[in-house]
Design a protein around this nucleic acid. Sequence first.
DNA 1: ATGATGCTTCGAAAACGATCGAAGTATCAA
DNA 2: TTGATACTTCGATCGTTTTCGAAGCATCAT
Lengths: 230, 230
Amino acid sequence: MSNNARFAEIAALAGDPGRASMLNGLMDGRALTASELAQLAGITAQTASSHLTRMTEAGLLAVEKQGRHRYHRLASPAVAQMIESIMRLAAPEVTAKPLRTGPRDAALRAGRTCYDHLAGHLGVSITDALIDAGHLDLGLDAGEVTDSGLALFARAGIAIEALTAKRSRILCRPCLDWSERRPHLAGAIGAALCSHCFNNGWIRRLEGTRAVSVTPNGQRHLRETFGVSL
Amino acid sequence: MSNNARFAEIAALAGDPGRASMLNGLMDGRALTASELAQLAGITAQTASSHLTRMTEAGLLAVEKQGRHRYHRLASPAVAQMIESIMRLAAPEVTAKPLRTGPRDAALRAGRTCYDHLAGHLGVSITDALIDAGHLDLGLDAGEVTDSGLALFARAGIAIEALTAKRSRILCRPCLDWSERRPHLAGAIGAALCSHCFNNGWIRRLEGTRAVSVTPNGQRHLRETFGVSL
DNA sequence: ATGATGCTTCGAAAACGATCGAAGTATCAA
DNA sequence: TTGATACTTCGATCGTTTTCGAAGCATCAT
C-alpha cells in the first residue's frame, strides 16, 4: 500500500464520529472494555466491535484480553499525539465563552487525567500557579521550566535530571484543555507531576471514570509546595 | 456543533485519498493552484474544487486569489503538525528497507523542503553531521542543541537567541523523512537553517517543484561550516 | 449443566460521499 | 470582441461505509 493510502486510512479511521468518541475516551491513557467504549460512543456493541477491530488492525489501538473482557487502549503515545493535534484544530476559538455541558460531568471538569498528565480545573490551576510564580513558561507549541522551577521540582522530589537525560520525549509542552479551553502542562514534566500526585496520595481516581479528586492532604501539599489555590 | 463532531469532521477531511494527496503536497509550505493540486491528486478540476472548498471552510487551508489563479496553502503550522503526526503513524517501520520509487523523483529525494525546513538526503545529511559532531541531540519527540551547537550556529550567523526568546514555537525536534525513513531536523532551528541556506544562495528551489538543489557555493559552505558531506 | 454476560461474525438495509460530465462565471490576452 | 484558461456550480451516478438485528462463540457464576 502506498504511503498516501495509509495516511488516508489512518485519518479516515479517526474521521468517524463513533470512532472519534472512542479515541477521545481513551485519551486519558487507561484501557477500556469494548462495552464501555460502545456506551461512550452511543452505538451498539456490534458496531463498536467492528470499529475496534479495524482500529486495532491499523495499529491505532492495542488490546489485552482478560477473561471475557477485552481492554482497549491507545497503541502508543504517537497515537495520542495525533489525536491531540486533531483536537487542537477542532477546538473552537479559545476566546469562546466556556459552555457548560451540564452538572453531570462536574467531577470531570474539576479534575481528570489527559493521557498521562492532569487536566480540567485541577490541571489548569496547577499550570497557572507555576506560570504565575515564574517557574514555567508556556508558548503555543513548546515550553520551558525556569531555574526556579527546576529548583522547585527538585525540592518536591521530582527528578527532572532523569527526564532531561533521555531526551526521547519532549520535556515540557502545553496541551489544550477541553473543559477550560486553556492550556495545561503536558510532556514528560506533566506526566511526572501527575504520577507524583498519585504516588503521594494527593489525588485519587474516581472509580470507573477518568476523573480525579484531590485529597485533603493533596490540597495542602499543592498549596504549600506549588502555590495552587483550588 | 459538538467538539466530537468537529474532531471527526477534521479527521475525515484528511481521510480521503484525494484530499490526503493535496495536503501532503502542501506540506512544503508553498501555495499551489487548484489545477496543480488536482493533477497532484490525480482527480479532475471539479472534484478538486469541491475538496478545496470544504477544506478551506473547515479552516485547514487558506486561499489567496491572484488573477484567475487561486493559491491554496495550509492555514497554519498547526495543520502541518497534524498532517505530520498522521504521517508518523502511517509511516511503515523505519527499519523497512528503503524502497526506491523510481528515478522520476530523484531530485525530490536528493533535497526538498518539508513545510519550512529541509528534508530528503540533504536534510538528513545535515542532521546527521550535526549529531555526529555533537552539536545536536535528537530523541523521538524532542531534541536539544548542545553548547557547541549553539556556538556553531552563532558563528554561522543564525541568531538562536531570537528563537529561544519567544518560546511560542518548539526550538528543535525531529521530523520523519519520507524518502530516507530517518529523522531530520525540524522546529524553529530547522526553519532558521533552511531560510539561512536560501538567503545565502546555498540552495535553490527547482522551478515549480518542492525540490531544492545545492549550489557549488552552498556545497562548500555546508562542508566547511557544518561538516556535511553530500 | 444452565443461564448470564461480553464480545464477535454475518447479512441486509440505509445513508453518505466521491466522482465527473455539462454548463456557468471570472480573468486574461489578443 | 473573441477565444482561451482557471475555476466553480449543478446534477446524476455509483461505490463505500455505517449501522444494527440475529445468531454464534467464549467465559463466568451457580
